[in-house]
């Protein structure tokens, strides 16, 4: 995590590669649904990808396939050039419905994310015969103290100090999603996959969380794959916006968002922002009219 980050996006190898992926849902007693039709997408390290498109165009399906939560029929999905064969702590997922464990406090929820993760430890080993000591590097589970400290760090990051011992039912929607985001970051995945994470929140909370997420991304440059149905949100956050079309789900267009960071809510007023937003909105709306026909 501490190593120097490569902030030049273009030359590096893709972190995640989705190539010619097809996915059809077999529906018992109905027509099969082609959720993804020949979808290809490369996600580079430190990118912030936003995916927009009419509902039912396969955004969630694509995310689940990258997360390893669902199999695809044909094509190739790799992370760091390894094929995705299942979920793993290298890909953190943040769900619209928060997915917090209701029986765990905020702290326990965040620590649970790290429960199965292994890290390198420098351990002092004593040779039984000679009594000499030497250091050894071991790949093992995190200690309770390490988990505690990391949980503290991320609770602070999402401004939830004082709520460590609250249960999810005692938190507002925005606070719950902040816990989920803290949990996602604490696992230190290579990429965060977010499925309409702010979709259930009111406008003010949403704006607040967008700013928080931007600030975090601007410092850590964690690769993000962010699904939203809100074009404005997509343009505000993304380095690239992927527009998907429905029936069958395809990548329709990829738009580079060349607005400089740091961005904030004021960015939404800038002429170039509005230009990009209107252009993408127009494309999405036209597809929506197509689908309605």
């Amino acid at each position: 995590m501490e190593k120097e980050k490569d902030k030049t996006v273009t030359q590096s190898k893709p972190l995640i590669r989705v190539k010619n992926v097809n996915k059809t849902y077999k529906v018992v007693g109905g027509n099969d649904v082609i959720a993804l039709n020949d979808v290809s997408l490369d996600i580079y390290p430190n990118e912030f990808i936003c995916v927009v498109g009419p509902s039912g165009c396969g955004k969630t399906t694509l995310l689940n396939i990258i997360a390893g939560l669902e199999p695809h029929d044909t094509g190739e999905v790799t992370i760091d050039e390894h094929p995705v064969i299942g979920p793993g702590p290298d890909r953190g997922v943040i769900f619209q419905q928060y997915a917090l464990f209701p029986w765990m406090t905020v702290r326990k929820n965040i620590e649970f994310g790290m429960k199965f993760k292994k890290v390198w430890h420098d351990v002092m080993v004593v040779d039984k015969k000679t009594g000499e000591t030497h250091m050894e590097r071991r790949y093992e589970h995190m200690t309770p103290a390490e988990k505690h400290a990391l949980a503290d760090k991320y609770i602070k990051m999402v401004n939830l100090e004082g709520f460590e011992n609250s249960f999810p039912k005692e938190l507002s929607g925005g606070m719950k999603q902040r816990v989920a985001i803290a949990r996602g970051y604490a696992v230190a995945p290579e990429v965060l996959l977010l499925d309409e994470p702010f979709g259930a929140l009111d406008a003010q909370t949403r704006a607040q969380l967008q700013e928080d997420l931007l600030k975090t991304w601007e410092t850590e440059r964690k690769t993000c794959f962010f699904i939203t149905h809100d074009v404005e949100e997509a343009v505000l956050l993304a380095t690239r916006v992927v527009i998907m079309s429905a029936r069958p789900g395809k990548v329709h267009e990829i738009v580079d968002i060349d607005l400089p960071y740091p961005r904030n809510q004021a960015t939404k007023m800038e002429p170039h922002f509005l230009e990009l937003k209107n252009k993408i909105w127009d494309t999405v709306y036209r597809m929506y009219l197509e689908v309605r026909k």
Partner: peptide, 28 residues
């Protein structure tokens, strides 16, 4: 809630962890 199961899998849980850490407390 199957989302909880999915979430646990993404943290690297094995089936036995899903059973002990998710199913049992959720069904309690």
């Amino acid at each position: 809630d199957k989302t909880l199961v999915k979430a646990a899998y993404t943290f690297g849980a094995r089936d036995i962890n899903i059973f002990l850490s998710v199913m049992i407390p959720a069904a309690f």
